[in-house]
Computed example of a mutant assay.
Amino acid sequence: MSQSTPIDELVAVMAKLRDPEGGCPWDREQTFESIVPHTLEEAYEVADAIEKGDRAAICDELGDLLFQVVYYAQLGSEEGAFDLNTVAAGVRDKMIRRHPHVFGERTLHTAAEQRETWEAIKAIERADRGEPARASALDGVPMALPALTRSAKLQARAAKVGFDWPDIAPVFGKIREELEELEQAVADNTNVAEELGDLLLATVNLARKLKVDPEQALREGNRKFERRFSALEDILSNAGEALETASFERLEAAYQLAKAAEKPNLPE
């Protein structure tokens, strides 16, 4: 008799949580739709642990994310639609199918060739499933993606069919143009959100041209701001000043001190 694996035991734990008789009331109430926000949160917690370089936290957060997959598999099993083995077998077969240069006899030499092969195989898979051919080059980019990530993917799709600046210089010009239009919109008090969206779109395009993930760049910017603002709070606290009563000028000066403190000491 084969010994159970941790995965087997995790599946059994999930089944127990969903048991109609002795399970957890909260877990029994959940549906595919209701746990989506938890899945997204767990995915971001994995990203956060990776950014911090905390291997123990990465392991822990990956466990939480894995549990989300097991949760969906349990729901699918209860409906008779699929189980965890079906999910694993499906992705195993997909990876083998989409990497003929690794598991087959085809030879690819560059990442660009791999991307082209990947997209071609995906198109064949869609046809085999009876899905209609994409009417637009932008079809298939999930609506649920974070807006920055989705914008980058939409613009990358457009670039593949030639809708792209030849180099980076015009992108800076486009950003300046959009900024001027936003300033005018603010002055006129009209279409401000629309013009701000255009500016963000142009900025994401710049990130794409620079080969920078805009979502990751903003996450790193947020982390930097949090670190410096925390230092600002320490500066005021050490000076016996209250954050709530300090003037903006004082807050800005403290922020600049915090910023300067991060710079390495240069030799005189």
Rank of each mutant, 00 (worst) to 15 (best):
15 A>M: 04
16 K>I: 00
17 L>K: 13
17 L>W: 10
18 R>G: 00
18 R>A: 07
19 D>R: 10
19 D>Q: 08
19 D>A: 12
19 D>W: 12
20 P>L: 05
20 P>C: 01
21 E>G: 00
22 G>S: 13
23 G>Q: 05
23 G>P: 04
23 G>Y: 06
23 G>R: 06
24 C>Q: 06
24 C>D: 11
24 C>K: 02
24 C>N: 14
25 P>N: 07
25 P>A: 09
25 P>D: 01
26 W>E: 02
26 W>P: 02
27 D>I: 12
27 D>M: 15
28 R>T: 06
28 R>Q: 14
29 E>M: 02
29 E>T: 11
29 E>W: 10
30 Q>R: 11
30 Q>C: 05
32 F>T: 03
32 F>C: 06
32 F>G: 09
32 F>E: 01
33 E>V: 11
33 E>H: 13
33 E>I: 08
34 S>A: 13
35 I>A: 03
35 I>W: 10
36 V>R: 12
36 V>N: 01
37 P>E: 02
37 P>D: 01
40 L>F: 15
41 E>A: 14
41 E>R: 13
41 E>N: 13
41 E>C: 11
41 E>D: 15
42 E>A: 03
42 E>I: 01
42 E>P: 03
43 A>S: 11
44 Y>F: 14
44 Y>K: 10
45 E>I: 05
45 E>V: 03
46 V>P: 02
47 A>P: 03
47 A>W: 05
48 D>G: 05
49 A>S: 11
49 A>I: 06
49 A>C: 10
49 A>Y: 09
50 I>T: 04
51 E>R: 15
